[in-house]
Design a protein around this nucleic acid. Sequence first.
DNA 1: TTGTAGGCGTTATCAG
DNA 2: CTGATAACGCCTACAA
Lengths: 341, 341
Amino acid sequence: MNEKTTIYDIAKALNITAATVSRALNNNPKISEATRKLVMETAAKMNYKQNKLALALKSGKSNNVGVVVPYIDRNFFSAIIRGIEEELYPLGYHVIICQTHELENTEIDNINALLNAQVDGILMSVSKHTEQTDHLNHVLNKNVPLVFFDRKKDINGVSTVTINDYEGGYRATKHLIEQGCKRIAHISGHWALEIYKHRFNGYKQALLDHGISYNKDYVIKAKSDISAGKKAVEKLLKLKNPPDAIFSSSDYVALGAIQELKEHGIKIPDDFCVVGFSNEPFTKFMELSITSVDQSPLDMGKMAAKVFLEQVKEANVKIEKKVVLTPTLKIRKSSSKIGKK
Amino acid sequence: MNEKTTIYDIAKALNITAATVSRALNNNPKISEATRKLVMETAAKMNYKQNKLALALKSGKSNNVGVVVPYIDRNFFSAIIRGIEEELYPLGYHVIICQTHELENTEIDNINALLNAQVDGILMSVSKHTEQTDHLNHVLNKNVPLVFFDRKKDINGVSTVTINDYEGGYRATKHLIEQGCKRIAHISGHWALEIYKHRFNGYKQALLDHGISYNKDYVIKAKSDISAGKKAVEKLLKLKNPPDAIFSSSDYVALGAIQELKEHGIKIPDDFCVVGFSNEPFTKFMELSITSVDQSPLDMGKMAAKVFLEQVKEANVKIEKKVVLTPTLKIRKSSSKIGKK
DNA sequence: TTGTAGGCGTTATCAG
DNA sequence: CTGATAACGCCTACAA
């Protein structure tokens, strides 16, 4: 009753063969209605559950997909995973999660482990410190669908789902310009990740398009945390001609920047505007809510899942799809100089 | 080269038998050093990877554990999952995640799917709306280790990892009393979850222990969101003798409460103190940072994983372990009446 | 319509 | 030390 019951058990109980049981269970057309019903009933009675492992071994499909991210408890990534799970679960897939901790070796490890586990696909955001691509090519060689989301490597034949970081940077900067800001600084991240380059490019182009000359001194590369934001502001305020706005590639940096600006008695948004990136939950909860670029991670996850599904459907065809989502600017108090209530 | 190579392939290449290859690969003592080396080398050369699926079918161990939570993108749960993953990954386990969306039927579904997938254990936080326990007993009948974290059902033989919600409520309330608050209200959650009852009990006992009589009008049950917090405050302020502090079972409610209090021109913490629960990331980022009870979800996840591991180790013995973690109060501005700088 | 037999990739048992 | 063989649970030609 409580131990595993197999199709053999129920075959024995019915004095028929396991093959017949299998067919009945799978609604195979070539089976009498009578036996089908009988099998179904006793299967239920004996509390039979199909062993997906055996099925997987037989069919070569595990119905598991691996998802690899730096850390699962970062809001951006957990929201993506949620999207993936919700899209894939109804189709019978299970999501296996792995964290790289931003370490190349761990990433390689994860990938290999997933491959050994015979996953039907891998959806991932590459680690900040990944330089090799052998392990990724390896996935392709095994004919396992691979999809990058957000952070990618340029590899032939791999589909990607990203947001238009350039556009995000552009819109954020344009918004600041429209608010009347003239000297807009930019705090960027580690350029090993191209997303930061793109945001910077968008920033730069927006300036140029609006007749504002680009000033190298206004651009700072920093880690993505609060204290980095503070330090960056300290530096910026020491310039002979300090900026009157910041577009930051990180919400945490934006927060640190705001804190430091307040320490200096600078009024936000009246005298200084700040825009962040990622639309972290806290940005909208702040009393001085922070304008930020939303990356719609939930949609990104769902889209990554859909791209994966297309890939499995057309197993023979090699498709390389590049989906680029458009970010939206969430305008909040930290940059609402005009039309303030 | 790029298709799956099995032990048969490498056996053929070496003119030996698959069994020998298997032994060599597994460092079986009864094998000559020479063939071991030979096998290892050609295995590497042929890029052999063990098929864990076959191993799982053979051994009955999938090396997968299922983790079931309401939503994975809630900070509390994603942090727990991170803890579980980090504890289990080094031992070769993979974590499969499922979301119940707080729905009983989805939970039942998830559990069954995980069982079919032959997971080696299930770690879960039960859904708010789960009343049945058949599906959970079912897990036990199959002899699959089951561990509850945070939200549990009282089922014989199931280990649990929770925090001492009573203590959390007690400490939060005591803290408010120590700050000089005299009329402390409590905003609770859905009592279908016993955690809310426990927090309430801690609140009540703290009052009594400090000679403050319990006032039913000061207790409100509400959903766990910002607007519920606002409404609760509206109600409380209409009392003939309104409170001067709130201990809320939710950080979101606490935030809503604070917003509403400010609307009414009430000074926090000078005239009114607020304490929340969960230590959501945003609580410490606010300009008026919010005092909150930290549940150390990362530790909770790690502990749940450890309990699971003990369980698999002692497969024969039925152990029912109840781990209760002690929450810590993170004191911040929203309740720091005394010793304010 | 149903039974038989083989195989998915491994490991374990038993001989040799 | 190594080779054959069976088994894990399921599905699917092929045969009856």
